[in-house]
């Protein structure tokens, strides 16, 4: 077989296989059922069990590179908070996080028209200085954020008027891809001040965050699977959300995920079989 030359293969064949494994399910719009796992339900409950109208801080610490994993999570959080009438304060520690906030505010405006700027949500935009921002937010909110993203004073907005420390809020939701991100929110805010916090992170980061569960971090959504299960949990509780195709983004992405994972597993297995068979031949010769 010319495809396999000395146990190696032109890598472009593998790339092509990957393209098909991910591309075809998207074109065919394959979807599979999801059952929310306990960790995801913990996140859901943390948002759902809060009294209606609680103030929540939404930290969007990611860039377009990770949007494929985190965008569905972020909008699921926004939609869930919207159905519960929670009041949202958006903030980004990444310069590229600011546009993400804006696209989520569009969702808020379209699907929850009763949400009013300043009263129900506030956009604080990008705050430079990485984790130092958090150090100041926990001691003097107004020193860090004297104005919102439009330059309006946070002392005049009803939602932030009485806010002097972010510990006054009921929950932190951190959606993040790296540093600064969820780890820093735990280290500087949730852990020292016992603030309730949930997170949605890239799959890469999620395993190391498990160490903080449940005392320092209530729970975490890991990668696209976490996003899909969270969307399912919202749909299970608020069936009208199921009619909104935008609220099924994560669920849709699980189709390509299935074939992609299976391809990788197959490649690992075949690669190892070839490796060991050649090794044996080598020993024999």
């Amino acid at each position: 077989m010319t495809l396999l030359k000395e146990g190696q293969i032109d890598r472009r064949w593998i790339y092509l296989a990957m393209l098909c494994a991910v591309g075809l399910p998207i074109l065919l719009q394959l979807t599979f059922p999801e059952i929310p796992s306990p960790k995801v339900l913990d996140v859901f409950d943390a948002v759902d069990k809060l009294p209606e109208g609680s103030r929540i801080l939404m930290a969007c610490d990611f860039d377009p590179a990770s949007a494929g994993e985190l965008e569905p999570m972020m909008s699921a959080f926004v939609r869930h908070c919207g159905t519960k009438n929670h009041k949202l304060i958006f903030l980004a520690l990444w310069p590229q996080g600011a546009p993400v906030i804006k696209s989520n505010i569009v969702i808020l405006n379209k699907e929850f028209p009763e949400y009013e700027y300043g009263k129900d949500y506030v956009n604080l935009g990008y705050q430079p200085g990485n984790e130092v921002v958090l150090k100041v937010l926990v001691t003097d909110f107004k020193k860090q954020c004297s104005t919102d993203v439009d330059g309006t004073s946070t002392s005049t907005l009803p939602l932030t008027r009485d806010l002097t420390k972010i510990q006054q809020l009921s929950l932190v939701i951190s959606v993040s891809t790296g540093n600064p991100g969820t780890t820093e929110w735990v280290q500087y805010v949730a852990s020292p001040f016992g603030m309730p916090m949930v997170a949605g992170t890239t799959a890469v980061q999620a395993p190391s965050l498990y160490a903080y569960i449940p005392r320092q971090l209530i729970s975490v959504l890991g990668g696209i699977k976490g996003a899909a299960e969270y969307e399912q949990a919202i749909i299970d509780h608020y069936p009208t959300m199921g009619e909104n195709n935008g609220a099924r983004e994560g669920l849709r992405r699980m189709g390509p995920q299935l074939l992609g994972h299976l391809l990788i597993v197959m490649l690992i297995v075949v690669g190892n079989v070839l490796y060991f068979s050649q090794k044996e031949k080598g020993v024999g010769a």
Binding site: Q8, I9, R11, I14, Y15, A17, M18, L19, V22, D63, P64, A65, S66, A67, G68, Q96, P99, G260, L263, I264, L267, I268, V270, G271, N272, Y275
Partner: peptide, 25 residues
Amino acid sequence: FTPLNATMFALLAFFISSAAFRAFR
């Protein structure tokens, strides 16, 4: 910026697939 940044990282899916076959023994 958005397409460039996102596609750069999406390339890794391909690299992982070829690494799965050749490197992970």
